[in-house]
Write a protein that binds this DNA or RNA. Structure first.
Length: 251
DNA sequence: AAATGGCGCAACCGCGCTATT
DNA sequence: CAATAGCGCGGTTGCGCCATT
């Protein structure tokens, strides 16, 4: 047979997604549920590789995503989980409903790492740094990989070893299991225009007042999608879990 | 006011795993 | 059992924004 490439590289668009592309992808999945990602671009009329569509959906368009600054409790949870799991971002993300692995990874690299170092904690080992803030971590990101690797070797399910995903790990944790997490329902979504004059898209709202509740709209940057011409967005949600789960469109 | 450097985030890349044939 | 398809994951890159000079 010969393995087909995931996409024809030539002629495919790369880089930032446009509003139009988002619209197409979103409405396609809305109407069809998920089909093999490889087929999605063609069927949805997108000049993108399937992988790119998948990523866009997963990290950006998928309903139920929280966006914006992470709360202190979320941050704490990430640190805890990272101490146990290392750079297993997807596993960490599963314990933070509405957050994506990419988002967490970025947040870790840009905020938490720095914060831990300032606190005199090595973000890799989660132990106190020796001799002041001598950056134990060299600038070589590979070290991080190596560190993660060592953790993996100890307890990574991906490699068929002990820890069975996060199940075991969090069985005693107060943290809800991801599959127990209710998806954000329409009634829970706070529209940006409802309480803010600033409908700035790409930058997250700075300083979510307090970290009590994340009143962050699900798709602050994609609100235009709500205007999808005639698409039964709310109906879609209202059909409830069965739609969501059966299509498994929001995985 | 312009230049520039740093930061943060979205997106891409490549590899590994699992399911299927 | 081997080959292949498809997907998921983690690491890296590139670009836009913002702060500083």
């Amino acid at each position: 047979m010969g393995r087909q490439p995931c996409c024809e590289k030539a002629g495919l668009k790369k880089g930032s997604w446009t509003e139009e592309e988002d619209r197409k992808l979103f409405s396609f999945i809305l109407n069809n549920g998920q089909c093999p990602w490889r087929a999605v671009p063609k069927l949805a009329g997108l000049l993108r590789c399937g992988k790119s569509c998948r990523l866009r959906w997963k990290n950006y368009l998928r309903p139920g995503l929280k966006r914006g600054v992470l709360s202190e409790s979320e941050e704490k949870l990430i640190v805890d989980l990272h101490a146990q799991l290392g750079n297993r971002w997807s596993k960490i993300a599963r314990n933070l409903p509405g957050r994506t692995d990419n988002e967490i990874k970025n947040y870790w690299n840009t905020h938490i790492k720095k914060k831990l170092r300032n606190m005199g904690i090595d973000p890799i080992t989660h132990k106190p740094l020796h001799g002041g803030d001598q950056t134990v971590e060299t600038q070589n990101p590979r070290n991080q990989t190596a560190e993660a690797e060592s953790k993996r070797n100890g307890n990574d399910s991906r490699h068929g070893l002990q820890v069975s995903d996060s199940d075991e790990l969090f069985s005693s944790s107060p943290v809800l299991r991801p599959d127990e997490m209710p998806m954000t329902g329409p009634h829970e979504i706070v529209f940006p225009w409802a309480h803010s004059t600033n409908n700035q898209t790409s930058s997250p709202p700075t300083g979510t007042e307090g970290d009590t509740q994340l009143l962050v709209p699900s798709w602050p940057e994609s609100m235009y999608l709500w205007e999808l011409d005639g698409l039964p967005v709310w109906d879609f949600f209202d059909e409830g879990e069965q739609t969501l789960s059966s299509a498994s469109a929001f995985d």
